[in-house]
Design a protein around this nucleic acid. Structure first.
Lengths: 245, 245
DNA sequence: TTCCGTATGATGGTATACCATAAGACCGCG
DNA sequence: CGCGGTCTTATGGTATACCATCATACGGAA
């Protein structure tokens, strides 16, 4: 970091403002902290750091190329998100998750997602339905390739559309955070045999229920969707009954 | 902070260890950060800082008697919790809340609390029922005094008992955070006429349903309890349709 | 008087220095 | 050989220094 302070902002000013609104400069002045936060979070979610692994601050400084101030604030953020735990007299580690916690997360997801899905089935406009249709078609194309990460992204977009169409930003935020805590679990869940088939099938059930404005059917399908995932997760996590993942 | 590093730990070592387990020293070495976090969070919840008010870092340093490192990490934590927002080019302010958000929070509470209450009604053991009885009796005693904060604490304990009895720590954590974001709203809600009557009445309904292991009745009462609160909150917040509180 | 440019102060972003502590390595004495 | 003490080092906790930027105030020129 000897050589700092001139990293971005070198785009030539050749952009043309088509209207008055777009003249506005609201460059969210991307701070180092935000970049570091995103990088580190993604790294943890992607499994670049194993659960339980120590996150030594000075090491992270080298790895991310920022100072400890930044790293520490990022760690506080991730700690509050539940992705990082801080062991006393030891410092931050990647959060572990056991079946007791994972199960709770699936429970909360059921409570929130069924609510959102039912609400969407009641009120969805045609634009929302169109969007969901598109997402599902993408998912169908990709699920044949069995690419877990792509499927995960499409699944996320599917639910995001549902949550946001009903104005449930806060609930979606909660679900997103919970999902990040079980991200590795979700990837493994998706890799399981048949999941790449049953998952999209359930989502299509949900979609059809939304199409015909049937909240109850949507709720049922959504609950089934999550409980199937939870079941697979349990089979991965529960037998050992130790803090895996 | 010229004079640091010898703040606690001066308790004389005259404690007697009644058994081997209690010999263990797990003093969570209370860090400045934890203390500052709690203080600042409480101050915001208590309304010592008005919503929208700027939280100038150096000023907070003086007020809390700690350095900016500590303050900034605490602010990151509170920001992630949703109690503080950071306006670009301006810095941290106490988070504002409008009816759109508050409503969502009540929605999520309904989803999570009805789930917990129903679960409790299905599985509650006698110890839990006893605990709830005690809490309710305390509440009855205090509700006559119309002390909003005391009632709030009792209400919190009531729900905490329900959540934790079913092992729903994560859901409770979420609810706690959401509640802190509408804390001022809750206090005002409680001050409303009749709320000091209808609130405990609803909680007794919930309690009775739990006593006789009736999940459906418990769910219904719980939903009614929250929706009544939301209704009052709406009347306080919605008409203006501006970012109050 | 009005407008523009500059100076100044406040503030957040970032980096770094310092300290206490705990865990491990090492060594010498029994 | 083993045990206890001490030294070293790694690490997190805390404080502070420095910088870029933005807002405001002020002053001079038209």
């Amino acid at each position: 970091m000897k050589e700092t302070m001139n990293r971005n902002l070198f785009a030539p000013t050749t952009e043309i403002a088509p209207n008055l609104e777009s003249l506005r400069i609201d460059t969210p002045p991307v701070t180092l902290r935000e970049m570091a936060l995103e990088r580190l979070r993604n790294a943890i979610i992607a499994g670049l750091f194993s659960p339980g692994q120590r996150l030594v601050e000075r090491t992270l400084c080298d790895q991310l190329g920022v100072s400890r101030s930044v790293i520490r604030e990022v760690l506080r953020h991730l700690e509050t998100e539940g992705l990082v735990e801080t062991a006393p007299k030891q410092g931050p580690i990647v959060a572990l998750i056991d079946w007791h916690q994972a199960r709770q997360i699936y429970d909360v997801r059921i409570a929130l997602e069924t609510t959102a899905v039912a609400d969407c089935a009641r009120n969805a406009d045609s634009a929302t339905k169109e969007k969901l249709k598109t997402v599902l078609e993408d998912l169908d194309r990709n699920s044949r390739k069995n690419d877990a990460l792509t499927i995960l992204a499409a699944t996320t977009e599917f639910y995001e559309t549902i949550f946001l169409s009903g104005g449930h930003e806060i609930a979606w935020d909660i679900v997103k955070r919970l999902n990040s805590r079980i991200s590795r679990l979700r990837v493994m869940t998706l890799s399981t045999t048949n999941r790449t088939v049953s998952g999209p099938a359930r989502m299509r059930e949900i979609f059809n229920a939304i199409l015909r404005n049937d909240p109850d059917a949507a709720t049922t399908a959504c609950r089934a969707h999550i409980m199937e995932a939870a079941k697979i997760a349990e089979s991965l996590l529960a037998p050992t009954d130790e803090a895996k993942f």
